[in-house]
Amino acid sequence: MKIKAIFLKPYAKYIWIILMLVAWEVTAKLAPVSPLAFPSLELILAALIDSVINGDILMQMAFSLGLILIGLGIGVVLAFLMSFLSVVSPVFASFTDTCVSIFHPLPGIALLPLIILWIGTGSMAILFVIVHSVLWPMILNMTAGFKAIPEVYKKIGMNYEFNTLQSIIRIFVPASLSFLIAGLKISWARGWRAAISAEMIFGASGGIGGIGWYIFNKRVFMDTAGVYAGILMIIAVGIFVEDVVFGKLEKNTIKKWGVA
């Protein structure tokens, strides 16, 4: 097979990753770099395996993912409520617009000092940051999706004697699913980053803490290989969610329907 053809395949991502790992290993082995800054792959892998067997890394990962899931859930429900009310009431729509333009550009981390004062430093605070990261992009996408719905769908909803809520749930939501999935992807990415940053700043909040806390701990104890192990875990989860979770979701919905 031609080399060019290989890089056009869906698995090209993994070839690039392997090439990067090779480049990494060559640099770590041959270049005059300190292993404290640039540990070799064996060291990173050993640190990862050690953390899996002896440490809490899997639990910490689950903790972080659990927080994200709860945050996503709360964020999506809130976003749905606000988008629904915006569809029903133009007055509320202008309120939502204002909120989005105020809060959307505001990174959750910038709110941290205030959050510490308001609700302390526990999981609740991290959850707050996640919900903040999820809510605004989700509202943006939901309202954009609802606005993009063809006029005929609204008429069909009326024709079937649906009230507004029924129309939204039975017609608007599936009709704007490509927007909702795009919103979910952005929300996931933002929420995930926010959660890890917040954990790195707050530290352990529910006992074992999350993956951000794991990395922070490795950093302060100068376990550079451990820091990279944590980063690898984050990348792996990122790719898993992007390729498997969202990939499956899209394949079974908008791709199958031909609306993606």
Binding site: I116, F202, G203, A204, S205, G207, F216
Partner: peptide, 8 residues
């Protein structure tokens, strides 16, 4: 007390 630490 390690599990009760908060980094601030």
């Amino acid at each position: 007390l390690d599990n009760q630490l908060v980094t601030l």
